[in-house]
Amino acid sequence: MHSKIFESYQPNDRSALIPLLQDVQNIYGYLPENALRDISDFVKVPLSRVYGVATFYNQFRLTPLGENIIRVCRGTACHVKNSANILFALETELGITAGQTTRDKKFTLEVVNCIGACSIAPVILVNDDYHGRITVKDIPKILKKYQTVKKTETAEVMK
């Protein structure tokens, strides 16, 4: 499926590594292992280095996304408004830690540095919906809303 992306690059060119990773992620929404191996063979860079680059940059992910992406703002304003507790509550509720996806592939939990909505801190972003001034108590209610919701656009891209 990703073999076409190599057409626009020169083989054995190390500088093509990051653009190739980005192209693969655009196709799958994440970086599958066999794609990393193919890239490693194509640019003649050891797999360990390809993996190193893929894990170094926050833009790359090595696991598929869940249907819903929850982004918890941990910027300064939200931090002051106790976003650490929000994150902890979400982790407890979903049974995963930040960066992971639930086993039923419903939710992916991510931490972001600031989403620029400080006036409504603490804030979380679920897919494209902002939930501001939330407390720990609101979390089960918010999650429940998305448990049943139809697949989002982000998930659509992946298919």
Binding site: E33, L36, P46, L47, S48, V50, Y51, G52, T55, F56
Partner: peptide, 25 residues
């Protein structure tokens, strides 16, 4: 491993506090 032996079995992965020299995956 990379420059002398040209094997490249291990490399730096992740970043910051979680940075670790390891094999792919």
């Amino acid at each position: 491993c990379h420059e002398v032996q040209k094997i490249g079995a291990i490399d730096f992965t992740k970043r910051g506090f979680t940075s670790i020299v390891t094999t792919p995956y």
